[in-house]
């Protein structure tokens, strides 16, 4: 698949010290890529640089092979969906949608037809005459997406578009966005700090931290094989314990293959679903069961492992029925991830 958007060695520094340094990224045509990271990691800086709202200090941005650096936002083949919807409150939905098309000198009947089609696509037919103030948050965001879709941009930029919505609506909007993307085949760059959102909608995720890219991979790979300690800490729930690496990774009485040839002290990361709980006589690190929380179809248990601290694990609900807080158990791990310390 051809490269639609290419970011090359992008640098931008603010007076506060934040910004991005040396960001390089290729995005394929029709791909939905998510820039994910904590506040201040530089994800919005990258997005705003693509959209032309920020001038980078160095580097280049190419869309369909052509550099767009120096072009103002209105001249770029991009469109942005903003966090706060940004519908124009003094215009009806129709006028909000038609404005960009009128600038492009589209005929009135064509505008009407295009608006009717796009409102069908975002499931808001017949809303043309409403004002933004009369719409719910979700409806406003759908109009904002529709406004961008109408312009048929080469790249659609989405800056935390669902962050102002409640959890249920956010979930629905994710699904809708994914459907719209599949129908339209648009290349999308999505910015969020919500890992669940990133994992659920992206073809690939770019995890950013302190202005740098930590990892670029599919959601599954990011979850299963976080390459850095930061990614392991940031994506999903994770337990961390200290261990030692020689020919094998050793923690308590357990040992695991040392695939990455670490040596010396290491941080060992274990997903809660990889925690195996055995009775006191079983194989594993001995500990005391501190708490059992039944969370619907599964239970979260926390076990104190002496010097190794407390570890949390997910267990089938049936498996914890016979357990009581305070009883002795042993803990084993189905899979561990290791990271060099320092």
């Amino acid at each position: 698949m051809s490269i639609q958007l290419s970011i090359r060695q992008l640098k931008k520094r603010y007076k506060t010290g934040d910004g991005v340094s040396d960001i390089s990224l290729d995005i394929r045509k029709g791909e939905l890529i998510t820039l994910l990271g904590p506040s201040g990691c530089g994800k919005t800086t990258v997005l705003r640089s693509i959209g032309g709202f920020l001038d980078p200090d160095a580097g280049d941005i190419l869309i369909e092979g052509k550099s767009v650096l120096g072009s103002p936002p209105e001249k770029r083949p991009t469109s942005m969906v903003f966090q706060s919807y940004n519908l124009w409150p003094h215009m009806t939905v129709y006028d909000n949608l038609a404005f960009g098309l009128k600038i492009r000198k589209m005929s009135k009947p064509a505008i009407k037809q295009a608006i009717s089609e796009v409102l069908e696509l975002v499931r808001l037919p017949g809303m043309e005459k409403k004002y933004p103030g009369q719409l719910s948050g979700g409806q406003q965001q759908r109009v904002a997406v529709a406004r961008s879709l109408l312009l048929k941009p080469a790249v659609l930029l989405l800056d935390e578009p669902f962050s102002a919505l409640d959890a249920k609506l956010r979930h629905e909007m994710r699904e809708e966005l994914r459907e719209i993307q599949a129908d339209s085949g648009l290349t999308m760059v999505f910015v969020t700090h919500d890992q669940e959102e990133a994992l659920s909608i992206s073809d690939r995720i770019v995890v950013m931290n302190k202005g740098n890219i930590e990892q670029i991979a599919s959601p599954q790979d990011i979850y299963d094989h976080p390459e850095t300690l930061f990614v392991a800490q940031f994506i999903g729930k994770m337990n961390f314990v200290k261990g030692v690496a020689d020919d094998r990774i050793r923690i308590g009485g357990l040992s695991f293959p040392n695939a990455q040839a670490h040596s010396g002290p290491v941080s060992i990361a274990i997903r809660p679903e990889d925690v195996i709980l055995n009775d006191a006589e079983g194989q594993g690190i001995p500990g005391i069961l501190k708490q059992i929380m039944v969370l619907g179809h599964y239970a979260e248990v926390s076990v104190e492992l002496g010097d190794h601290g407390t570890i949390r694990g997910f267990q089938p609900r049936e498996a914890v029925k016979s357990l009581q807080p305070g009883q002795k158990v042993t803990v084993h791990f189905a899979k561990v991830l290791t990271y060099s310390e320092g």
Binding site: G51, S79, M80, F82, S84, N86, R104, S148
Partner: peptide, 14 residues
């Protein structure tokens, strides 16, 4: 808000 102006620029307004 700045974002109103930015979104107008974004759709191509001079």
């Amino acid at each position: 808000p700045n974002s109103i102006v930015e979104s107008a620029k974004d759709v191509g307004a001079g």
